[in-house]
Amino acid sequence: MATMTTQNGDYAGRCLSMLFVLTVLLGVGAVEQAFGQETGSVTGHLYCADTHTVCRFGSVTIQSVPAKKKDGAPPGDKHAYSSPTDMDGVFEIDGAAAGEYYILGRCAGYVTPYDVLVAETSGSVTGDNEGLKYALNLVTVAAGRTTSTSLTIQRGASISGTVLYDDGSPAENLPVKLLWRNAKQTWVRFANSANDSTTSVLGLDSVQTDDRGRFREAGLPPGTYSVMIGLREVTWKAKQITGSSEMDMRVTKGDGLKVYFGDKYRLRETLPIVLHDGEDRTGVDVTIPANGLHIVRGLVSAKADGSVVEKGTVQLLDPEDKAVVREADIANNGTFVFHYVVNGSYVVKVSGEDGGSKTGDFDPVTRNLLVEEDVLDLNFALNATAKH
């Protein structure tokens, strides 16, 4: 049998060492139900391993195992069903098409081996992923019968800290993004499929700082993490005081100063946080500068006739590894701007795009930039891309 490895070693070994293998007790005293011959049901309990109690108001999902592809054969039908758990930790899935299924239990703050797989694939787990055979257990739905099964899940680790500005005031309502160091030792956005959010299964952002600048991210599998705090580039504000709740959206791309754990401004310099099973890591604090920041502003035009380039992007790159530090759009008047730029060396990369009848595509250009004060005239003239 093939194995899948992560940065902490063999995946199958990880699943055993985490002591929270999904325990599936199949076919114990199966009870016949008044279903038709094509569907059956699955019922049972979801348990919390750390408290040895039932998991209330969690969820259990089953998803059909993809049939093995045969030459010339059409793909089999895909089925998925889910059920919440009640006050007694009981779930009931009725009317499921007969067949073999993966089964997964979820509860806020708890993890399974599947969550490691989600992290390693940055949230893009497909039904034919080989890792599923190690990360999930199986349950068989028999036509006209009920299958009894119980699942046990393990409490995950957590990371908590405080984000302050350098004048001591709390940095409130800022998004907190976790980074995960994968098996290739590369930092990627962590897709948390187990946190306390209805959108967590989609890998969407769900954690932000509170009015004291505090944050806590729970339901984490063991691994190596870091934290990134970014100033918002999109905000929603109420347009009026009374009456309807009409909102106004403001996009300020280019304002997104990023600060990593360790008060670093480059991803390669961030400090790693190694989490073990169920560990509560506190003191992951970040300071955001409010002083000593600069504006970088400029204009992008076409070298041929001096007309403005109406569309494209300008990036500030790390000169060592060429990672994108900041990015801003070129406005339709050819201007771009970065706010809140910290002192340091950058490589500026400008990419002009087709913006209409006046402009075509342009060859990208790069230029070294040292920021020690405001830069207000960083202008670029681009050559049109040669047509073949």
Rank of each mutant, 00 (worst) to 15 (best):
S82L: 01
S82I: 01
S83K: 04
P84A: 08
P84G: 04
T85R: 03
T85F: 07
T85L: 03
T85I: 00
T85S: 01
T85D: 09
D86G: 02
D86A: 04
M87V: 12
M87R: 09
M87S: 13
M87D: 14
D88M: 10
D88I: 00
D88L: 12
G89N: 06
G89T: 09
G89W: 00
G89R: 03
V90K: 14
F91V: 06
F91N: 00
E92S: 13
E92V: 13
E92M: 11
I93R: 07
I93Y: 09
I93D: 05
I93A: 07
I93W: 08
D94Q: 13
D94H: 08
G95W: 02
G95A: 08
A96L: 14
A96I: 10
A97R: 14
A97H: 13
A97S: 13
A97W: 12
A98R: 09
A98S: 15
A98Y: 00
A98M: 09
G99L: 06
G99C: 02
E100R: 11
E100F: 06
E100M: 08
Y101Q: 01
Y101C: 10
Y101D: 05
Y101R: 02
Y102N: 12
I103D: 05
I103C: 04
L104H: 12
L104M: 11
L104Q: 12
L104V: 10
L104I: 11
G105D: 01
G105I: 07
G105R: 06
R106I: 09
R106G: 09
R106H: 15
R106T: 13
R106V: 07
R106W: 14
C107N: 06
C107I: 02
C107H: 15
A108C: 01
A108V: 03
G109V: 03
G109S: 07
Y110S: 00
Y110H: 15
Y110W: 09
Y110G: 02
Y110N: 05
V111C: 13
V111A: 03
V111E: 00
V111M: 00
T112W: 02
T112Q: 07
T112N: 14
T112F: 05
T112H: 11
P113R: 03
P113N: 14
Y114M: 10
Y114R: 01
D115L: 06
D115T: 04
V116L: 14
V116C: 14
V116Y: 07
V116T: 15
V116D: 12
L117K: 00
L117Q: 02
V118H: 11
V118K: 13
V118N: 11
V118E: 13
V118F: 09
V118M: 13
V118L: 10
A119T: 01
A119F: 12
A119N: 15
A119H: 10
E120N: 08
E120G: 01
E120C: 08
T121Y: 11
T121I: 07
S122K: 13
S122R: 14
S122W: 04
S122I: 04
G123F: 05
G123E: 05
G123C: 05
G123L: 09
G123N: 07
S124P: 00
S124Y: 15
S124L: 13
V125S: 08
V125I: 06
V125E: 08
V125R: 08
T126A: 12
T126K: 11
G127S: 14
G127C: 02
G127K: 10
D128S: 11
D128C: 05
D128P: 05
D128L: 04
N129A: 15
N129P: 00
N129V: 06
N129I: 03
N129Q: 11
N129G: 07
